[in-house]
Amino acid sequence: MPLEKATEAATARQVLTLGLGDEEYGLDILRVREIKGYSVITPIPNSPAYVKGVMNLRGTVVPVVGLRERFGLPTVAYDKFTVIVIVTVGARVVGLVVDAVSDVLDLGPNDVEPPPEFGARVDTSMLTGVAKREERLVMLLDVERLVLDAVGAGLPEALTAAGVGQTTNSRLEATAS
């Protein structure tokens, strides 16, 4: 697992930044399927507080995870500015509720550092790193881990089982060196 993270941190990529409370988080753009506004969510009985329920995405039943709840931020009411980011992990499609979505950043290998040792607030096992860009500090989310943990599949082995397969890290680049 650490080896994977090192590789990810070392290669350039694009990240969608999300707002959550006062902080910014980043998601690998390749995982983002679409961004939706407020949608009706049907609660699931006897589930963790951060699993808000399921929603109807054009006929598919998609679970929705509240990132505020997941990271221990106070819950806010849904309104028309609430955003749900639909991501794919393996064969799963999952929605993540965030406060807002802002821009897409191009991150080079020098922009990303390993996640720091935080206090209790954010579960750093859910981060792949931290990106610094001018004054901004963007915490990069490990979407796979986040989703698999939320649906109860948890373990890295589940990555293969979920159909992610061995070649997720394949990259082809041509750069002037």
């Binding site: 390749l30 070649t167 890290n169 041509a174």
Partner: peptide, 29 residues
């Protein structure tokens, strides 16, 4: 969704170009 190819902008300098490959380099990619 974008394919995972990241091609840098070419510079017209005659230093060696690096083609960086990883993972499965096969007919699927």
């Amino acid at each position: 969704m974008s394919e995972d190819t990241n091609v840098g902008i070419a510079e017209r300098i005659e230093r060696p170009r690096t083609l960086r490959l990883s993972g499965a380099v096969d007919v699927s990619r």
